[in-house]
């Protein structure tokens, strides 16, 4: 196997692994905020690894499209997770028993007095 094959194999398998663990986290984690972590982030890393693994096997001409996919993933995933998280926090999608400390709640409370 050439170096290229190795890079591709490692990228694809580890990327798939991250996606699987992300899916497992989706099932096991208790509340929206922590599920968001499992749903958006590992999938980002997993996708990047899969894209990298694929790109090394392709002609450069086709690989640039994959770079674009990776770039937009990196730009959009955090924005989405943030908007969802913010909405989840306000609509009670948080399991308070998981929080060691919540400085936002304290701040919101102090504002109401």
């Amino acid at each position: 196997m050439s170096v290229r094959d190795w890079v591709s194999a490692v990228g694809l398998i580890s990327g798939a692994l991250f996606c699987v663990i992300g899916a497992w986290g989706m099932v096991r984690l208790p509340d929206t905020l922590s599920r968001l972590q499992a749903a958006t982030k590992p999938q980002t890393l997993g996708l990047l690894l899969i894209l990298a693994g694929t790109a090394v096997r392709l002609e450069p001409h086709f690989a640039v499209g994959l770079v674009l996919a990776g770039l937009f993933q990196v730009i959009t995933a955090p924005a989405l997770s943030q908007l969802f998280g913010r909405a989840a926090y306000r609509t009670g999608g948080v399991d308070r028993s998981t929080l060691v400390v919540d400085e936002l709640a304290q701040r919101l409370r102090s504002g109401r007095e």
Binding site: R28, L99, V100, V101
Partner: peptide
């Protein structure tokens, strides 16, 4: 994150700071 989640088998302990 994964090692933590696997070890605690899905019990999260988080903070908002």
């Amino acid at each position: 994150f994964f090692v933590d989640t696997l070890r605690e088998s899905g019990r999260v302990s988080a903070a908002i700071m």
